[in-house]
Every structure is written in structure tokens, then in C-alpha cells.
Amino acid sequence: MSVEGIVAGGVHHALFLNGYLPAMPPFAEPGPVTPVALPELLQRRIERVVREAVDVLDLDTCATHTEVKLGADGRMWVTETALRFGGDLIVRQAEEVYGLDLIGMLVRQLLGRPVVYPRRMLREGHGAAASLVAVPTDGAGEPWPPDEPGWDFTAVDWHTIPAPSARRWAGRYRAQGEAGMADPSSHWWSGSTGPC
């Protein structure tokens, strides 16, 4: 799990929770899923644990990305807190699912402009979103050898992969340029987390 947040003038605002697709061996996160289908009480407990972990750092104003591991017995561990928003397309997922402009919120906060934060971490939005990271390994999780041919983005007809309901979302990237989805130097495929 990860919680995206903003610390504003020393006050941490947990904004929303991400789940992750099952890890691939030996360990690779294939991508985040928003929102998370966990009971509200557990989500509120995660929110409290993350807030306590971030508060200990005595931060002023910044983005936060805090990862939490859940144990089968109800225990949880904070494994990472970074002073940035999450990678992959988490910033885009926040916009699609919750209508949150994370970058805009943080910039307005840094400029001293008013920002309206949710009273509590958001649990429900408008639909769902996920990112999928292509990890160059074989089925056992072994990395592709360096002498193997590189990934050819043009060899895949990207518009036939997503379900029809997802094509609307992918089509927004096409509007940036016809090569937008197949061009490895574009933001979509470069591995960049964008402006965050």
C-alpha cells in the first residue's frame, strides 16, 4: 500500500491510498491500483499510522509518498516515506479517480495560495485506475540478458490492448501527438514520473 499526501505548513494531509498489483518474483511492483478495496476501519488505521510516521519527520511543506506493508495478523510496517509523489502514473490516477490535481495543490501551497484539502483520506472516487509497469524479465523473474534485443514499442498495437472502457482514457494521450503512445521518448513510455 502507499499513501499520497501533502504536508502544508507542518500539517500532514493524507489524500488517498494506493494498492499494488501482486509482485513478480523475485520482487517487482507491476503497478499501483486506485482506489483500494479494504474495509474503512483498516484504511483509517493506515491513515493514522502514516500520519504519525510523517509527523515524526517535522516537515514544513512538501509532497509525501509513504509505503506500508500489511501483515496477516493486522500488524503494519512503514517501509518508506519519500518527499515526493509516487511514481508510475499515480499523479494521473489521483486526477482520474478523485479529481485531485496533486501538482497544482502543492504549487499553490508553496506559493502561499489557499488550498482545500479533504478532511480525511479519500476512499471513494469516480471509477478506478491502475498503472502497469512493463518489467523486462522472463516468467521466473530473471532479467532479460543484455544481449537480448531491446523492447520495440512500435511492435505492439497499443490501442487493441485495453478494454473498450479504458480506451477513452488512453485516447487522451493520443491527442498529444499521433506517436504519443508508441514513442519511447514520450513521457508516457519514458519511465518518467512527470513533473513530480
Results as ranks from 00 to 15, higher is better:
Val7Ile: 12
Leu38Lys: 00
Pro22Val: 06
Glu67Lys: 06
Pro25Ile: 11
Ala23His: 14
Thr61Leu: 02
Ala28Glu: 12
His13Val: 01
Ala8Gly: 03
Arg45Leu: 08
Pro35Trp: 01
Asp55Tyr: 04
Leu41Tyr: 08
Ala23Pro: 14
Phe27Pro: 09
Ala28Arg: 12
Tyr20Ala: 13
Gly19Pro: 06
Glu47Ala: 07
His65Asn: 06
Val49Ala: 03
Pro22His: 06
Leu38Arg: 01
Leu41Met: 13
Leu42Lys: 09
Thr64Ile: 15
Gly19Leu: 02
Thr64Leu: 13
Thr34Leu: 15
Pro22Ile: 07
Leu57His: 13
Tyr20Lys: 15
Ala63Ser: 05
Gly9Gln: 05
Val54Met: 09
Glu47Trp: 02
Ala28Thr: 04
Leu15Asp: 01
His13Phe: 02
Thr61Lys: 00
Glu47Pro: 00
Pro39Trp: 02
Met24Trp: 09
Arg51Gly: 06
Val36Ser: 02
Arg48Ile: 04
Arg45Gly: 08
Val56Trp: 10
Val33Lys: 04
Thr64Asn: 09
Leu57Phe: 12
Ala37Phe: 06
Ala28Leu: 13
Val56Ile: 12
Leu41Ile: 11
Val11Asn: 15
Val36Gly: 00
Glu47Ile: 00
Leu15Lys: 04
Met24Pro: 07
Pro35Lys: 01
Pro30Asn: 11
Thr34Arg: 02
Glu52Trp: 09
Cys62Asp: 06
Pro35Gly: 07
Glu67Gln: 05
Leu38Asn: 01
His12Trp: 09
Val54Lys: 07
His65Leu: 02
Gly9Asn: 10
Gly10Asn: 13
Pro39Cys: 14
Pro35Thr: 04
His13Leu: 03
Ala53Lys: 02
Pro32Gly: 01
Ile6His: 05
Glu67Phe: 04
Val49Ile: 11
Arg45Ile: 02
Glu29Ser: 13
Ala14Pro: 06
Gln43Asn: 04
Glu29Val: 11
Thr61Val: 08
Met24His: 14
Ala23Met: 13
Gly10Lys: 09
His12Phe: 15
Arg44Asn: 08
Pro39Ala: 00
Asp60Glu: 15
Ala37Arg: 01
Asp60His: 11
Arg51Ser: 07
Val54Ala: 09
Val54Gly: 14
Asn18His: 13
Ala53Val: 05
Ala28Gln: 14
Leu42Pro: 07
Glu29Cys: 10
Arg45Ala: 08
Ala8Thr: 05
Asp60Ser: 15
Gly31Thr: 04
Pro39Thr: 05
Leu21Met: 14
His65Glu: 03
Tyr20His: 08
Glu29Pro: 12
Thr34Glu: 05
Ala37Ile: 06
Ala28Cys: 11
Phe16Met: 12
Pro22Phe: 06
Ala23Glu: 15
Cys62Gln: 05
Gly10Val: 12
